[in-house]
Design a binder for these strands. Structure first.
Lengths: 235, 235
DNA sequence: CCAGAGGCTGAATGCCTGTTCAGCCACAGA
DNA sequence: TCTGTGGCTGAACAGGCATTCAGCCTCTGG
């Protein structure tokens, strides 16, 4: 179609360029529409390339999927490495400034996590490892409360955070903004809401004790106060 | 295929039965594989019915989708009505006992929420309304802390809870159990983890103040403590 | 200047999709 | 007992899918 063989650059550079364009297009479309709802032609069209070329480079569509998983893992690893290398310079602001670039990547990750797969499962394990390391560090600095199970908490925070991102359309509708749709300057309501929950908690101490006793010995109390925490799975 | 015209029941009963079986099959498959990744024949096969019959009843596949949305809304409404009718009898236990029956429904809901659509958006708004009512009630009873924005908090809790359910495969892997995969008796680790977060919060009071000041006036502090709350969108 | 290599394409292939059509079978009403 | 109605089907259809193939065009190495 477009097919312009970009002038002076070498063949290997052109190859890498088209191959990369295909992966980028695939990640973007998979992120947007889900892994099962994207056709080869859509990817080829977005990458401004013919469909057979995709097969030529990746063997098949599932080969492309694998390549996307690897690319996602690679980019996330690179991001983490960079963050470590920046050290003190990696401020909250610096993180926000990069957010737009990683947006499709993050949405692809959530889609891939839903589908599962060896590659992606391993990546998720790594993310949990990192989250545990971060929070443990923050606990020692007195910024984060200790947890009876640091790993479970870190995993759940990750699942909740990523999961909420999957519903970004609804988030945008319900709280007016979402990190997936808007630039960081407009994340205010999102950040405030998350902080509201994660800073103070949701339950009062009394409710926590009450609910816990009801769960461990369910038949003794007829009222149902802990509904809120169960709203996800049940209502 | 099977096609057994079940003996003594009338034609209208048989019709309703097949139609219902199709909707059930569709909801189950859409819930499992995503809205864009299910074929008409798969649905027909699971419902033990021919593909043309699905078209005959719903006009087209998108007609079936609409019917599924309506059915999902109907069932959720029925569930809420029942809960209200049970009143004091609607205990935590009673809720759990019903969970398995509503499992595909809930997964369908999350898939539909991702895709969006008029019908489903309205349903989500209703769910938020209910969540606000519940939490406001619980605040008055002293079980839940008040929030600066009750609606935003209720919406975010819903998004986080539903979102985490979408990643139930990962949840199962990471904390060993998930409400989508296991019976209520095994939800222990899930409930404890959610309670850990929602009861005590994650941040210490000092970290909250520090982070808040850094966000509202970002350029004054070079360190980056509030990473944890941003892990969802960024790392 | 002349092969050879390789990125890349359009056209062709066979499979699978949603949908249409004509007709079957069980039941309801006369 | 006959006739109509309606749930339901297999077969047929066009269109779209991933994939294969033969060949083009540009660059590279000699």
């Amino acid at each position: 179609m477009v097919y312009h063989y970009g002038g002076a650059r070498g063949a290997s550079a052109a190859k890498r360029e088209a191959k990369q364009r295909i992966i980028d297009a695939a990640i973007e479309l998979y992120a947007e529409h889900g892994l099962g709802a994207v056709t080869l032609k859509q990817i080829a069209a977005l990458a401004e390339v013919s469909a057979p070329l995709v097969i030529h480079h990746f063997g098949s569509t599932s080969g492309l999927r694998t390549a996307c998983d690897q690319e996602a893992a690679r980019r996330i690893y690179a991001y983490k490495t960079m963050a470590v290398a920046m050290g003190e310079q990696f401020t909250f602001e610096a993180m926000l400034r990069q957010s737009a670039a990683h947006r499709p990547l993050l949405r692809y990750l959530t889609q891939a996590l839903m589908a599962g797969g060896e590659e992606v499962d391993a990546l998720m394990d790594q993310l949990v490892d990192d989250a545990v390391a971060y929070t443990t560090d923050a606990v020692e600095q007195g910024l984060v409360r200790p947890s009876p199970n640091e790993r479970h908490r870190a995993a759940m925070l990750l699942l909740q955070g990523l999961g909420a991102m999957m519903l970004h359309r609804q988030m945008k509708r319900l709280i007016g903004t979402s990190p997936m749709d808007d630039p960081p300057e407009e994340w205010g309501p999102y950040i405030l809401t998350v902080f509201d929950i994660y800073a103070h908690g949701v339950f009062t101490p009394g409710a926590y004790d009450h609910a816990l006793s009801q769960i461990t010995a369910p038949s003794e109390a007829p009222s149902a106060p802990p509904q809120t925490s169960q709203r996800g799975p049940d209502s």
